[in-house]
């Protein structure tokens, strides 16, 4: 006979079974994007690394991969230590993400993970760190920027280039300001300026020239639409940044996160296992081939 606890542990050991986390806070970032903080009910999942992702379940609706956008900001109050709390930033684009964005504090969300590879921040030690984000792509980059700021002295310049479709789509505007104050060189551009926009207009690669990363000593992390990542990587290569020092976070359909469903293949890569963060020396040829 297995005891109830043993049975519960066995189930928790099953990576296909979500653990239900409570929504402890919810913030509307933009008209379609919400950041939520989740606290474990019982035993929390192992510590997530920046760049890794969760599979989030909206009860009875479905499950989607969502990157870690931060570790907990607060602890105590029965929800476990802050580092084991998860922040996720979700953009409502379909049935599941809409349902996740509609959650209220106090409600429960299923979580599985951590899955996939993280940003290799250790490889950037002693280098300038250049972070390039497009749209929701800023969410997976936020925790790695925060980690670099925690350990500021180990890196050279910290440069963050952000592209958004319009000013209304810009994620974390208050935090961008706070990061600027902490010494991050932040530059923002939009595709479509609205009324009163004073800043840059154009693709995010247009910010590279002014930011002028010094060649041989830059490590770059890029996340955004695939075409933007390719252009950004090619621009960096033109600036003589070696391809293995460029890391990109790739997106494909994922049903399981655990290497069983076969959906996230990109050539030899299973992106839930060998990605989502991949160095560009591996990714570039695979990203070049149409419909791979």
């Amino acid at each position: 006979m297995t005891t109830l606890t043993e049975a519960a542990e066995a189930e928790h050991a099953d990576p296909a079974v979500p653990r239900f986390y409570r929504v402890v806070s919810r913030r509307e970032d933009t008209y379609d994007t919400v950041t939520m903080e989740l606290a474990a009910q019982a035993d929390p999942l192992p510590l997530f690394a920046p760049g890794q992702f969760s599979m989030l379940t909206a009860f009875g609706i479905g499950e989607v991969p969502i990157s870690l956008s931060g570790l907990g900001s607060s602890g105590g109050d029965g929800g476990g230590p802050a580092a084991l709390r998860l922040q996720h930033t979700v953009r409502a684009v379909g049935a599941v993400t809409r349902s996740l964005c509609a959650v209220r504090p106090g409600q429960l969300i299923g979580v599985r993970g951590p899955f996939g590879t993280g940003w290799d921040l250790a490889s950037a030690i002693g280098h300038d760190l250049l972070i390039i984000a497009g749209g929701i792509g800023l969410a997976p980059l936020r925790p790695v920027l925060l980690a670099a700021l925690e350990d500021r002295s180990r890196y050279g310049r910290l440069v963050l280039l952000v592209g958004a479709r319009s000013p209304a789509d810009l994620l974390y505007p208050d935090e961008l300001e706070a990061w600027r104050e902490r010494g991050v060189e932040v530059a923002v551009t939009v595709d479509r300026p609205g009324e009163g926009w004073q800043g840059n207009v154009g693709v995010v690669t247009s910010l590279l020239e002014p930011a002028a990363p010094g060649a041989n000593q830059t490590t770059a992390f890029i996340c955004g639409p695939e075409i933007m990542m390719r252009y950004a990587a090619q621009a960096l290569i033109a600036l003589e940044v070696p391809t293995q020092r460029i890391q990109v976070s790739l997106e494909r359909t994922m049903r399981c996160g655990a290497g069983w469903c076969g959906h996230c293949q990109l050539g030899p890569l299973l992106l839930c296992r060998d990605g989502p963060v991949v160095t560009y020396d591996r990714a570039s040829e695979l990203m070049r081939i149409r419909e791979l």
Binding site: T57, E63, R255, H263
Partner: peptide, 26 residues
């Protein structure tokens, strides 16, 4: 060939949910 998709279903109350794995094809 092992690829699968998942289907989430609920009963009429909405308080009982199940996830099924179903064969899928590339």
């Amino acid at each position: 060939c092992f690829c699968t998709a998942t289907e989430d279903v609920t009963d009429l109350t909405g308080d009982h949910a199940e996830r099924w794995s179903v064969w899928d094809s590339c």
